[in-house]
Every structure is written in structure tokens, then in C-alpha cells.
Computed example of a mutant assay.
Amino acid sequence: MELAELVARRPFPAAGLLLGLTRRCPLSCAHCSTVSGLFTRQEPDAGQLERFVGSFTAENRPDVVMLTGGEPLLLPALAERLSTLARSAGSRTALLSGMFFARGGALPGSRGGAFRGRRGGGFPGRRSGAIPPAILRAIRSVDHFSASLDVHHEREVPRADVFRALQLVREEGVAVSLHLTGTGASDPYLADLTRAVEKEFDGRVPCLVNEVRPFGRAASWARAARTGPDPAAASPCPMAAWPVVAFDGRVVACCNQDTVDRRPVPPHLDLGHVAEDDWATVRSRALESPVLRMLRTVGPTHLAARYGSGPRPGSYCDGCRALGGDEAVAAGAQAVAGGAAGALLDMTAAMRGSREGAQGIVRRHGCAAYAPLVVAGGPDLPETDGRDLR
């Protein structure tokens, strides 16, 4: 499964599932949206996750399961079991890693030989130049493997180490990609990094390029959007398409990290819990909720302006979270988006959102200047130091 295939499914409701295995991570990147850390031990019960993924059937399953964290490869055996269960029902799996296991020059051609962690720990008995066996088994079990890389990651895992590890994963026959993050189209770091990726992989490794958002550790320093959507205009929310399993097992209809971490979950965004519900139940709630259909079709700002009975919070996402207790919004959504007509409206919005393919989705929701890189071998970007990419 290539990156463009995965991204192209993003607008379709319940076509994917984002599954957070753990909030723990050996890295402490300054922009981490989940505020993960080595001693932040919050994770769903493994048995409950396996039961939930085991409830997939050939007739009722997500197309894609994205294993995330924290660092999901801190639990490689669990990642392998979940991907195997998902695959048995016909779902494809992808995994996103911060590449902690590549750090310290343990891979071929790197400096220093054996792996050493931040505090001197390592993998006893590991052959120099190899990915740890349990981690390699987990990687082999997935259909797509993505590595995170940006200026914050590079302070802890050098890009040369990440590149070497990705070359090894490619040799295993697993499709790979890079998730790159910067401050925007004019960021000289992104220009330098994307040139380095092109040189290293000869255009054969696609990249999903995003901009730092003001969530998690970045909330205190990243620049937030200055203006919100026009209340009179439809501004559909793509974040309400794929269910998210949070670190406490709660399933949320939104991947905005502030919402995923909020307790209690706003009622209209609460899809259940892996301890109590199966995939069929979660999928039904995600697809059949009139409010969620309206969020995906016109967005929370327009919905609140048209039906809301209370004051409107300032930000787009705050406005969405405030909709949960508004009975007028629920009634308005039911009138417009209930039943078969609402299902058709929802699917029409998804088709419209996917019309331009993976590149169009990245142009709207990622760093637009680098959207062509989501496709391996996509059009070359202009040679630049970043200042003329506007």
C-alpha cells in the first residue's frame, strides 16, 4: 500500500481507523501533539484492542488501520498481532514511527556500532547493523511503514540514521514513506530536507508534508490560524471522518488532539469504548449520526450559525466541541441529514473531497507547496532555499 492510496481514503467516513497503542515515546520532541514521553505510561488495554480489531469481518471492516502513538514500536508484539488480525479480515495496516530504534548509529555505515538509548540502554545481543528482531517482525507485518522526520526529531535521531533504517525496511519489501513537518512553505529546513530525501531515495519514497500545529507541546509557541471560516460558507471538517482510539480506549469521532484528550468527550463526538463496543457498532455510530454527517458536509461553524442557540466560541474546533449539548443543532442536523438523504449527502461530500486525489487532499490540509511529494516519483519541486515557496 503506497502513501497516496492511504491519503486518498481520508475523506471517506469510517474508511480508516486511527489506533493509538501507547502515549509512551523515547523521544521528547518540542512539537509533539500528544505530549508523549518515556515515562508517560497511558495506553489502552492490549486485550481489549485485540478483541476490538478481532471484531472486524470481511463484510464490515475499515479499509485502513493506522497504528500510532506515542511510539507504537515500543509495543512491537502488540503491533504485529493487531496488524495480523486486521489483515485476516481484509484491512490493510500502516504504522507511523519516530524511529527511536535507528538512533545512535546501529545501522550499516553509521557511527559508533551498537545502539544506545538516551540513557545508555540498548538491545542486548543485537547484531550491529540490524533492526531489532521484534521491531523488524512488526514492520514486516504491516502494509505501509512511515517515519517521522523534522527539525525536532533530528535533534534526537539524525536523518542519516533514519535514511539507513528506511533503506533496510525497503529491502524487506515493505512500502515506506516519510512524514515531514515544518513551519510552512517558506521554511528553509523543509526545502533542505526534501532535497535530501530526493537525493537519498531517487524520488522513490513519497512524503506527506505538514505544518506544525499549535497542539500538545507546540501549543505555547506554534502560530495558530488568525481567522476562522466564514460562518455563511460551508467549511467541511475532514477530521470527523475516521474514528480514533484514544490512549484510554475511548473511541472519538475526531483526530484533533485536544478533542481526543478531552474528558468527558463531547457527546456528539463520542463513539464508544473498545472495552464495550465492537467495530460494527462504532462504524454505525460514525456513519449514521446526523451531526457528524453535517460536520463532514458543511462544518461546525456553518452548522452553529444556522441552527445554534448559544454563543459561538472563537475557534473552529472550540465551536465544534460546543455543539454537543445544543439540542437545536441536533434537531437541525436530524432534519437535514437524517436517514437515506443524509447518507447520500455525506457520501457526496466525501467524493467531492477526494476529487483531486491525494495531492488535492494534502494541498487543502497539509503543506500545499509540497503536495506533489505525496506520490512517489511526483513532479520535481523547484530548487529553492525555501524563501520563494509561497
Rank of each mutant, 00 (worst) to 15 (best):
G299V: 01
M347K: 05
A185C: 10
A328L: 13
E288C: 09
L323A: 07
V64T: 07
P188C: 04
S315D: 13
V209G: 06
A218I: 06
A102D: 08
G339A: 12
G366C: 00
P133L: 11
L166H: 01
S28K: 09
V251K: 03
R321E: 07
F115S: 10
D318P: 02
E172Q: 14
P243T: 00
S186F: 00
V375Q: 10
G386T: 03
H273N: 12
C320T: 03
T181H: 12
A30H: 15
R363N: 03
G308R: 01
M294E: 13
P243G: 03
T183C: 00
E80V: 01
V265G: 08
W221Y: 12
A15T: 04
R155A: 13
V265D: 06
P133A: 14
E288S: 13
C237N: 03
L180C: 15
S284M: 14
R24S: 07
M1D: 00
L389A: 04
L17V: 00
V209K: 06
V197P: 04
C25G: 00
L190V: 01
A240D: 12
G272K: 05
A15F: 09
L19M: 12
E59T: 15
G299S: 03
A335V: 11
C320D: 02
V205M: 08
V336L: 15
P266V: 09
A305C: 08
S55N: 08
V298S: 09
F12I: 08
I135P: 08
E198Q: 15
V362N: 02
Q167I: 12
G184Q: 02
L75W: 08
L95Q: 02
R283L: 08
A233V: 14
G357P: 02
R9V: 14
G216A: 04
S177K: 04
R155F: 06
D346Q: 15
C367P: 05
R51A: 15
P72G: 03
L74W: 05
T40A: 15
H144A: 03
A219T: 07
C317L: 06
R41W: 14
G16E: 06
H153W: 11
V298F: 03
G98C: 11
P311D: 14
L178E: 01
L74I: 13
G324S: 04
W221C: 08
A280G: 13
L373A: 07
C207P: 02
D230E: 05
M347S: 07
L287N: 01
P124L: 05
V205H: 03
G105S: 00
R24Q: 07
E71W: 00
G308A: 02
V197A: 03
D143I: 06
H365L: 08
A371W: 01
W279P: 02
V252L: 07
Y370N: 05
L17R: 01
S235I: 00
V362W: 01
T22A: 05
P231S: 08
G47K: 11
V329P: 10
S148R: 12
V205A: 06
R195T: 05
P108I: 10
R10C: 11
R195N: 10
A15W: 11
R51L: 11
A322Q: 05
